[in-house]
Computed example of a mutant assay.
Amino acid sequence: MLDTILGPLYYVVSWIIVQFHTLYSLVFDKDSGWAWGLSIVSLVVLIRICLIPLFVKQIKATRNMQALQPKMKAIQERYKSDKQRQSEEMMKLYKETGTNPLSSCLPILAQSPFFIALYQVLNHIAQGKVVGVIDAELLESARNAHIFGAPLSVKFMDSAAKVEALGASLTDVRVVTVIMIVLMSASQFFTQRQLMTKNVDLTVKTPFMQQQKMLMYVFPIMFAVFGINFPVGVLVYWLTTNVWTLGQQMFVIRRNPTPGSIAFTQRQERLRAKGKIVEAPEEIEAKKAAEAARANRQQPKRQPKAKRQLAGTGTQTSTGDEKTSLEKKQPEGTKPKPAGGSRSAKSGQRKGGPQRPKHPTKK
């Protein structure tokens, strides 16, 4: 069934590989792994060059989805009890903003048929079956081609007898496949990490960021699980496309980063250093004021325990000091006035001072 559907694509993929193999046979031995391996790598490069327009659409769609996350979340909260109305509002939002949620998946979807076709072509080669334009002579040459001691058509899970029949050892095959799987997983991880750490708008916190962070760990695990079931030639294809994606993303992030991201700030600083961006006088003054305030601001120092305890008794100490200072201010030969001085002085005059004369009594 699958051969019937993808049969025409088998001819396309096999024809491209054969053409590159003919070209590389002028430099390398036609039966060598270099001739066949480089043919697969060239197939990847050709496909990815054709997919560059779709990749640009993917970048734009991803940015639009990031920008729409707050509005999408608001719609979900507003119509959480009415799923139909929620879907209608989502579609309306996509239409108004010109966003297609599937655009971010276009490069993967477009590349998948070629990936499946290559897998089937190499699987036919491993089984000794003629496929596409690969005749019996090319079939024998491809079966005996080795990359670092591993035939292109074998898998990690193949038996030792099958591997030895192709003139290789099971240890070499498994070492090569494990190294390729690790490199595939690492390249996928760094690709996703680069996207998360450098090309995400940090001013907006959205669920999209959490999803991307989760995919950063899920994809490498998927590569490790499925990689042991792919022929070495497919692993070469997959590793090459991952490395291409990593390099292509680095180029795009450096030249056209997402506004509000770390990469965007770094790009603005580079352009400013080259004199391609001239700041307004208000921005320069505001930046200088912020830097001056940052420089003058002092961080509080942590005091030792003894000083902290002394600070707790500061009220009592200050009160004693005030009393001492008051005593020093009194002139010599006088005593300091007791608390409530005015009332005490009046009472003292009544007791010790001259008495008011009494009225004479009538006799």
Score class of each variant (00 low, 15 high):
Asp3Arg: 02
Leu6Gln: 09
Tyr11Leu: 11
Trp15Phe: 11
Ile16Trp: 12
Gln19Ser: 04
Gln19Tyr: 11
Ser25Ile: 06
Leu26Val: 06
Asp31Pro: 02
Ser32Asp: 05
Ser32Arg: 01
Gly33Leu: 15
Trp34Gln: 15
Ala35His: 04
Ser42Asp: 02
Leu46Asp: 00
Arg48Val: 07
Ile52Pro: 03
Pro53Gly: 03
Val56Lys: 07
Lys60His: 03
Ala61Val: 00
Ala67Tyr: 15
Met72Arg: 04
Arg78Phe: 00
Asp82Tyr: 04
Gln84Lys: 08
Met90Gln: 09
Lys92Cys: 08
Tyr94Gln: 08
Lys95Phe: 06
Thr97Ile: 01
Ser104Asn: 14
Cys105Ala: 14
Leu106Arg: 07
Ala110Asn: 11
Pro113His: 13
Phe115Tyr: 13
Phe115Cys: 10
Ala117Lys: 07
Tyr119Cys: 04
Val121Glu: 06
Gln127Tyr: 11
Lys129Gly: 09
Val133Cys: 10
Asp135Val: 03
Asn144Lys: 03
His146Asp: 09
Phe148Val: 14
Phe148Asp: 03
Gly149Val: 09
Ala150Thr: 10
Val154Lys: 10
Phe156Ile: 10
Ser159Arg: 07
Ser159Asp: 12
Ser159Glu: 15
Ala160Gln: 15
Val173Tyr: 09
Arg174Phe: 14
Met180Leu: 12
Ser187Gln: 02
Arg193Leu: 04
Leu195Lys: 05
Met196Tyr: 00
Thr197Lys: 13
Thr203Gly: 05
Val204Glu: 02
Lys205Met: 00
Lys213Trp: 01
Lys213Glu: 07
Leu215Pro: 00
Phe219Ser: 09
Phe223Asn: 14
Phe223Ser: 13
Gly227Ile: 08
Val232Asn: 06
Val232Trp: 01
Val234Ala: 13
Leu235Val: 11
Trp244Glu: 15
Leu246Ile: 14
Gly247Met: 15
Gln249Trp: 01
Phe251Ser: 11
Phe251Val: 15
Asn256Ile: 01
Thr258Tyr: 08
Pro259Ala: 09
Pro259Leu: 14
Gly260Glu: 06
Ser261His: 08
Phe264Gly: 02
Thr265Ser: 05
Arg267Gly: 08
Gln268Trp: 09
Lys274Ile: 02
Gly275Asp: 04
Val278Gly: 04
Ile284Val: 15
Ala286Ile: 01
Lys287Ala: 13
Lys288Met: 05
Ala292Asn: 03
Ala293Pro: 10
Gln298Lys: 07
Gln303Ser: 10
Leu310Asn: 14
Thr315Leu: 02
Thr317Arg: 08
Thr319Gly: 07
Lys323Gly: 07
Thr324Phe: 02
Leu326Cys: 04
Leu326Arg: 08
Glu327Asp: 11
Glu332Leu: 12
Ala339Cys: 00
Gly341Leu: 05
Ser342Leu: 08
Lys346His: 05
Ser347Met: 12
Gln349Gly: 09
Lys351Asp: 14
Gly352Trp: 12
Pro357Ala: 01
His359Gln: 14
